[in-house]
């Protein structure tokens, strides 16, 4: 997980805006934010709001929640949501966001479904290539102490077996 220098480090005001934006999407109904006063209450659960770390933790939690809540198609997690390109604003937090997502009991099953879909013979090749950054994320995790990840060797074998089938 050493490759974290590619993107610029986000400043606190921008970070706060990103946190609020994601929270708003999660709490929007029919174009209005439901109980906006809950934002401050929820933020308190992450700790002291004077520290950047508190906001980073909130951001990663909310990003994972949105990834889960918006997952109509599991393959989109691989080709878009978790396809972290270095120029993306959330690149520096990619591992923490993914770790938060993996806390969901169904997370591994959803990823597995996404893999099955993108390696299906009828899946668009250009669309599949968008998952390259997702596989890079997995590669970075491989060998990290205590990391919950997927073996990229597994996904390569998986791809091979699907192609052969």
């Amino acid at each position: 997980m050493s490759n974290t220098t590619a993107s610029s480090v986000m400043k606190l005001p921008e970070l706060k805006e990103k946190v609020r934006y994601t929270w708003d999407i999660l709490n929007e109904w029919d174009g209005a934010i439901l109980q906006p006063e809950n934002f401050a209450k929820e933020m308190k659960t992450f700790g002291d709001r004077r520290y950047k770390k508190t906001w980073v933790n909130a951001l990663c939690k909310f990003e994972a929640m949105l990834a889960y809540a918006s997952c109509l198609d599991s393959w989109m997690l691989l080709t878009s949501t978790f396809a972290f390109r270095p120029e993306r604003w959330d690149y520096e937090y990619r591992h923490q966001i993914f770790n938060e997502f993996l806390m969901y009991p169904k997370a591994v099953e959803i990823i597995k479904t996404g893999l099955e879909d993108i390696f299906h013979k009828d899946f668009d090749v250009q669309e599949r290539e968008k998952a390259d950054e997702f596989f890079r994320l997995l590669e970075e995790r491989e060998g990290s102490a205590g990391a919950i990840g997927f073996s990229t060797r597994f996904t390569e074998q998986f791809a091979g077996s699907r192609t052969a089938a």
Partner: peptide
Amino acid sequence: YAQAVVTETNELFGCTVTELYEGTGGKTNR
């Protein structure tokens, strides 16, 4: 994209994506 999926699901079906899968018995996220 995420925002659009949340919005269209809310508007079309009056529920969340998770509720839609749970309520219809679909295999989650497919």
